[in-house]
């Protein structure tokens, strides 16, 4: 009886280890939202290409008209992630007071999104997005991902965080210019290739 139980236990452990989720699951498509600007298209495509190239997982970029729409879709699990700005998150989504310090702001939105919304802010890309948003409030752009997506794909955070701090002010301006003239997907691919990320 004990032997049979041990055999069953070992079988179940092996089965679980074989079928545990990784990024390279069969047939799962990840969906990334964008909110209608060239910068958004570009950043979504950078994430999409990175995931697709490094894991083989199919990634779909889904357009929205605004941050509010994308945020609502994220909460409903219609999408897995989108790129948000810390200032927008703090003021428009969380309805909180603006914060002048960029690091404090990131810490504040990260904490409240995690605790109240089950959403995770990953590392900011590295450029100050305030100018492009036309606001004075400090704004960093960073991927916001559903917590259950990260649970399903444990390697996803580590992968996307490779983009953290990789895009400075000069780089985003150049990439946006190229994406305006051509294809955001191709520009994203070229950026990742040049940085040896794919």
């Amino acid at each position: 009886m004990m032997k049979a139980l041990w055999a069953l236990t070992i079988f179940l452990v092996l089965l679980c280890s074989f079928s545990s989720s990784s990024l390279a699951c069969v047939g799962k498509t990840l969906e990334i939202g964008t909110t209608g600007t060239v910068q958004q298209e570009l950043l979504a495509n950078i994430i999409s290409e990175l995931i697709s190239e490094r894991t083989g997982t199919t990634v779909k970029v889904v357009p929205f008209k605004s941050s509010d729409e994308a945020h609502a879709a994220l909460l409903k699990a219609d999408i897995d992630m989108y790129v948000e700005y810390t200032g927008v998150g703090q003021v428009s989504i969380l309805k909180a007071q603006p914060l002048a310090d960029a690091a404090e702001l990131f810490k504040a939105v990260k904490q409240r999104y995690n605790q109240e919304l089950n959403l995770i802010w990953l590392k900011p890309f590295g450029f100050d997005a305030a100018a492009s948003l036309g606001v004075t409030l400090p704004a960093e752009a960073a991927p916001v991902v559903r917590k259950d997506t990260l649970k399903k794909f444990p390697a996803l955070a580590r992968l996307i965080n490779k983009l953290g701090g990789k895009i400075d002010q000069q780089t985003i301006a150049l990439l946006e210019k190229e994406a305006t003239a051509g294809s955001p997907k191709q520009v994203a691919h070229g950026f990742l290739k040049n940085n040896r990320l794919i």
């Binding site: 990784s22 990024l23 390279a24 490094r54 894991t55 083989g56 580590r158």
Partner: peptide, 10 residues
């Protein structure tokens, strides 16, 4: 092209 052999993330 671009790769004959490529390793995945893990």
């Amino acid at each position: 092209r671009p790769y004959q052999v490529k390793m995945g993330l893990q």
